[in-house]
């Protein structure tokens, strides 16, 4: 049997190959990162001092630019004093994979530097709370409004022009206002997530609702369905699968607003952790925290996809 082509146009690959490529999509960037980190001659613009020799201000572990190190080494050589030694290194803002991997673990076990500061898991919990509340409140209003706008032209005309305008206003621009109105704690952050999500949500869901096959509505009407039964027995069940998919995508957007939201008022949550760690130059912790957001986002999405496949049995497959 001849091998199936890897490049067949719009043909699905075998499950084995799909799995393989899926893993590869993570392996390739990781491999590039490893190459840059571990192979000395690829980048490594800095020198890390291993032995300061006679140079007074060198300390072991210090990172220097090549030129500075060479100059001092030259100077020491001329004076006939002990030369410093060092090895090529990457700048401090690019830690190696193993350092970040370790930080993923140690970030959770390191006690906060000050008593009033939070552990990482508390910061993460805080972020999840802000996202969840912002998204929940947005959905509470956005989903019904979107469905109404997609079903009845009255609501569509009444809402959408304004919503269309409002969604171009950048959510972070409301930061100062939100703080003035809602204080410096969680509330303004939730408000930013809400503003960032809500207006998109109304439009996206209105559009999804409009895509419902009109012949289903016609069939329902010839079976005797009237206003409310059309809405609750045809429109909503008819779009629920796509609506669920939309909500998953919108939740992803809500995550992208998180960092901005958390910088408003008193910095909190994972953003606080990131800025704090960057201040201490613990960049492996910064990377670790960023990855954690990614991992959290992806797992939530996969979990929701899995749940979706179970609660909508009539759908052969809910595309990822």
């Amino acid at each position: 049997m001849s091998a199936q082509s890897w490049f067949a146009v719009r043909k699905e690959l075998s499950p084995k190959r799909r799995m393989f490529l899926g893993i590869l999509s993570f392996v390739i960037p990781l491999a590039i990162w490893c190459l840059v980190s571990y192979v000395p001659f690829i980048w490594h613009p800095m020198v890390q001092v291993t032995d300061p020799g006679s140079v007074s201000y060198f300390t072991p572990g210090m990172l220097l630019e090549h030129e500075v190190f060479e100059r001092e080494a030259e100077a020491a050589k001329e004076k006939g004093e002990a030369q410093p030694t060092g090895e090529p290194a990457n700048p401090i803002y690019l830690p190696a994979p193993h350092q970040v991997a370790k930080a993923m673990y140690t970030a959770f076990t390191t006690e906060p530097k000050r008593r009033d500061e939070k552990w990482l898991h508390e910061s993460l919990g805080n972020s999840i709370y802000v996202i969840a509340m912002g998204f929940l409140i947005s959905s509470l209003f956005g989903v019904p409004l979107g469905i109404l706008a997609g079903t009845y032209d009255v609501f569509s005309r009444l809402n959408e022009p304004f919503v269309e305008f409002f969604r171009y206003l950048p959510a972070p621009a409301f930061g100062a206002l939100a703080v003035a109105v809602l204080g410096i704690n969680e509330a303004p952050k939730i408000a930013i997530i809400f503003i960032g999500t809500f207006f998109q949500q109304v439009l996206v869901i209105a559009n999804t609702t409009r895509k419902l096959d009109p012949s289903l509505l016609e069939a329902a009407m010839t079976l005797g369905a009237k206003r409310t039964s059309l809405l609750f027995r045809v429109v909503i069940p008819g779009i629920i699968v796509d609506l669920y998919k939309d909500q998953r995508i919108l939740l992803g957007w809500a995550w992208t607003y998180l960092i901005v939201a958390e910088m408003i008022g008193a910095s909190s949550g994972i953003t606080w952790f990131i800025t704090q760690q960057a201040r201490y130059k613990n960049f492996e912790n910064v990377y670790a925290a960023i990855f954690m957001i990614g991992v959290l986002g992806l797992t939530t999405d996969l979990l929701l996809a899995w749940i979706g496949r179970r609660i909508f049995p009539w759908q052969r497959s809910i595309a990822r």
Binding site: S215, E218, A220, V234, G238, I240, Q315
Partner: peptide
């Protein structure tokens, strides 16, 4: 009652 050319069964 009406039967349409396209399949108009409610998929859910």
């Amino acid at each position: 009652g009406m039967v349409f050319q396209g399949y108009t069964l409610f998929p859910w």
